[in-house]
Nucleic acid binder design. Structure first.
Length: 302
DNA sequence: TCCCAGGCCATGT
DNA sequence: ACATGGCATGGG
């Protein structure tokens, strides 16, 4: 079965998705145990293929729409005040309103973003792919007559039981990162990290961030990424090298010229909320992030 | 060859 | 608090 969805740009936060081939418009992933294939038709439209019984079509449809956060009207993310204050940025953003910040699994988001430290997106994607292929359960499907082997994201148990040294093959040979991933998986298995409890939207962002940062390998930025992409906290605003750059260039922040120390991080976080809707700061920030990478940095990876 | 990539951590001042 | 270096590899 397939469903068409308008207003979806499939890009920007997709370490858990895999492109069929170079320059292919098809992407695959297993979301909540269900194999999904997405075809990017235009920057505003995708087609979703899923494998299930037609009786529960309406349920699947709702599930996918929630996953793709179709409930968020992207044009409401930026205020009228924003458009009049920053007309150049506003003009550039026109092509990027199709981007959806998707509601991904928090555990999978945590592990995959722990791979995203100071290296290019290409390498990050490769690490997550290798983790899936090495430790994830195989799921064979047939798509347009072809047999395709997909892999589930490895369970917390499988990563918790993994040998860190062996796992480091998947983490760019970075042993420290491999060790941290195994430790985090163990913490999930033993209930010391309870991501279900952290889903409570009443938890203040700084508390959420501090809680996640107790784990080795998770700093402010990764914690905010887990909140934004994994816990549906669209108010969380992860600040990385690109965000720091566009805050300096586009929003003339002098704070952005300083090194990204914890203090600077918190100052930038507060600054961003003065020109972005605080409740959707991360959502807007991600649209800006993607636009910055594509338009200014001319990066092709996503 | 050098610098930068969706950072984090330990160490020295 | 802030600066610096190590971690690792690939691409521009």
């Amino acid at each position: 079965m397939a469903v068409n969805i308008h207003w979806a740009l499939f890009s920007g936060q997709s370490f858990l998705w895999e492109q069929f081939d170079i320059d292919s418009n098809y992407y695959s992933s297993i979301v909540d145990g269900m194999p999904l294939i997405i075809r990017q038709l235009t920057s505003y439209k995708i087609e979703v293929y899923y494998y299930t019984d037609s009786i529960i079509d309406h349920y699947i449809n709702g599930f996918i729409k929630r996953y793709l956060s179709i409930d968020i009207d992207n044009h409401s993310v930026f205020t009228d005040n924003f458009h009049s204050l920053y007309p150049e940025v506003s003009a550039r953003l026109k092509e990027y309103y199709g981007l959806r910040v998707i509601r991904q699994n928090p555990y999978e988001t945590m592990i995959s973003f722990m791979c995203a430290q100071g290296i290019g997106m290409h390498l990050i994607r490769r690490q997550v792919l290798m983790l899936r292929n090495t430790y994830g359960e195989k799921i064979p499907i047939t798509f347009s007559g072809k047999e395709i082997i997909l892999h589930k994201f490895p369970t917390p148990e499988s990563l918790a039981a993994a040998d860190p040294l062996k796992l480091s093959i998947c983490t760019n040979n970075n042993r420290e990162r491999a060790k941290n991933i195994v430790l985090a998986a163990r913490a999930v298995v033993e209930g010391r990290i309870n991501l279900v409890d952290l889903r409570d939207p009443e938890i203040p962002l700084d508390v959420l961030r501090t809680t996640l940062c107790k784990n080795r390998g998770i700093g402010f930025k990764i914690a905010d990424c887990i909140a934004l992409f994994g816990l549906g906290r669209f108010d969380a605003f992860p600040i990385d090298t690109h965000v720091k750059q566009y805050m300096g260039e586009w929003f003339k922040s002098t704070t952005a010229l300083r090194n990204l120390t914890p203090t600077t991080y918190l100052l930038l976080d507060a600054e961003a909320r003065t020109f972005l809707n605080p409740k959707l700061a991360g959502y807007g920030g991600h649209i800006l992030f993607h636009c910055w990478r594509k338009e200014i940095k001319k990066l092709r990876s996503f």
